[in-house]
Write a protein that binds this DNA or RNA. Structure first.
Lengths: 214, 214, 214, 214
DNA sequence: CATGAATGAGGATTCATTCAT
DNA sequence: TATGAATGAATCCTCATTCAT
């Protein structure tokens, strides 16, 4: 595996696309789409400009590939988490498992992706639509369904599920964006764990019916 | 040829910067900083490119002016809201007044501004720092102080105030960003009022101590 | 009018398009469309690359403009020559006036234009169509009509007019192309006048009926 | 895996250069040298880009090879035609045999070659020189010699032989170029045979002395 | 001999910025 | 003060050429 000869280039057709996408994700996320130079993307991926065009027809298509490829694992992660609950599970338990899942989700690349999509939605309407349909609707159904279930089972106070999703996910989204945008300038630094803990306390108290409740 | 109203030119001259800033705000917000052409900014402001350079030394300074000028009224609005509470006011009342203020705040240009700053923070570190110090710290102090006060007065459950601010502001931030980013692709549309209402219910339930509480 | 100060650039909106077209004509003709660099076109026109784009949206449109603008005066020249004959004029006189017109036509930019259109017709189908319809059809009608007239009046031998046009124009076309393509490598140089003279002799002898003819 | 016919590879190897040259000829002719991509040449020849470089050091040399290889058979064809005449043959008979040869010559690849050389002469001076010296001079000597002979034998009117060659070959050249350039856009289509017939009539009438001639 | 992934110089195009008017 | 023609550096993209396989 040691590269004895420093050859001018390597032939690595299989690995290239992912390497380029990763590099592009980093730069698009840091600087935005327009402000990212393809030269820099290529350099970060360890190839030259021309190679990028071997795998993606142009910068816009590279962007779309970046979003699509980066979204997939996040969707999968989310659905996996949801699949764990059985019929017997108490709704409050599901809610708690969501709060326990939040920290790692907030620390994942999902935050950078969210920032990127927010920043470029205006220039890439089909990416925006794709994001809404594939990511947000799905998350809404997942979280909304869980809240609906809790209400129907008499475990939760009767609130508007769709709105509750925004209340539930909002703090997580803000924290994600915060981390990739402002965290460097903040002092003292926030604690993601503490935020999730507090969110949990408030929601358990505000959403879950207690025995004495009417 | 006789200039019947010489003051009109005068007034125009004074109005120019704001007109240009407004146009730039619109375009920067829609397309991002890099993807916005100065030609388009000028056209939207009803002037020509050259005129922009009469008031702003370059595109970057125009951007900074846009952020600064747009931030100010929002800060003022926020502080005005907070100034209304007196010592006698119950903390829950202050909390409720915040929730009542949210819908108009969410509908204000603050959402577009937030999106813009998030998108460009990586390219404008001093804007990011300025935003954190002038806007976020201030909001945190305001909201955090209010929560702290409630806890100290025994009106709120003892939670981490800094984290609670994220929980409180997160849903508002998400809704603001949603409106300027994805609302066009969403169906059925969300209701800002309903979200604020739900947020209020959950928070009152989760944060405010009831008589029987330990 | 004397340019006392060697200013960085002149503002010459009116004159620019023609200057650029002339420069482009020269280079496209010498090197072909693809092999001509816009930088060189601009330099030859005394402007910079950016200026070219002020007047033409891209290289292809510049090419089309070059062809269109260069064709027009040639068409006009041709039609003017034809308009001189009256009903009373003998067909042989018209024929002679054409041969007398040939040398100056062959020396005009029409030759370079013809070469350019031949070379690029494959890449610019609409230019090819435009050339056939606007230039060639017109020339064919003009020359063909003249021959037809001579035949009908009994002045010429009965030949196929459309074919005769090729026979008549062929030598002129070849000489035009020769001049802009091979003349530099030829020794001894050809004499355009002598070719036209010879053409005249052969055609007068071969086309015009003599008294004794059947 | 056993190569049943090892000779097929061998034969392929020998056939390659011609296949590549043919493909290049087609594309260079259609699009011009600069606008033809080596990728396309290779694809049309049924090989990959790398293989082209096995046989030709670079694109320019491929071009030169294309011209050289394509010219040779045309020269041969021409000389074969000329070799048929003996001392006894009447000059008018030779002239007629030339006109009878024209249609097949016009339909041959010579037209495309002529177009290509005209288009690229400016970029390939040595090709232009080669063409003038090897092709044109030869043709001029052949045709010019024939006319000279006719004049000396008193069979033709005394015209300038060099000029007469242009008159004789011009219509053929124009028709050749026409076919490869504009024929697709022309309506009604021209008849090559009719043009040659008309050319023959005019030239016999204009060049050949009749008994009664002074 | 043949391939095709990778290269990188070169060229079309854009656009922030300048400046004569 | 305002204009907009002109600039030229920066950037996307192409494609002839190389070379590991």
């Amino acid at each position: 595996m040691a590269q004895s000869a420093p050859t001018r280039w390597q032939r690595r057709k299989e690995a290239r696309p992912k390497e380029i996408i990763d590099a592009a994700f980093t730069l698009f996320t840091e600087r935005g789409f327009s402000a990212s130079r393809l030269d820099e993307v290529a350099a970060l991926a360890g190839v030259t400009k021309g190679t990028v065009y071997l795998y993606f027809p142009n910068k816009e298509e590279l962007f779309k590939a970046v979003v699509r490829e980066t979204i997939l694992p996040n969707i999968a992660q989310f659905e996996a988490m949801a699949a764990q609950a059985s019929d017997a599970t108490a709704s409050v338990e599901i809610l708690l498992s969501i709060f326990r899942f939040f920290p790692q989700f907030i620390a994942s690349p999902a935050g950078a992706l969210l920032k990127l999509v927010i920043a470029e939605a205006g220039n890439f309407p089909d990416i925006a639509r794709f994001f809404v349909e594939e990511v947000i609707q799905r998350a809404r159904q997942l979280l909304g369904g869980m809240i609906q279930r809790g209400i129907e089972r008499g475990e939760f106070h009767p609130v508007d599920p769709a709105s509750a999703v925004f209340c539930l996910f909002g703090p997580a989204a803000l924290t994600m964006l915060w981390r990739v945008t402002f965290a460097a300038y903040d002092d003292p630094a926030i604690s993601v764990d503490r935020i999730c803990q507090t969110l949990s306390e408030i929601f358990i108290g505000g959403l879950v019916r207690r025995d004495g409740d009417a």
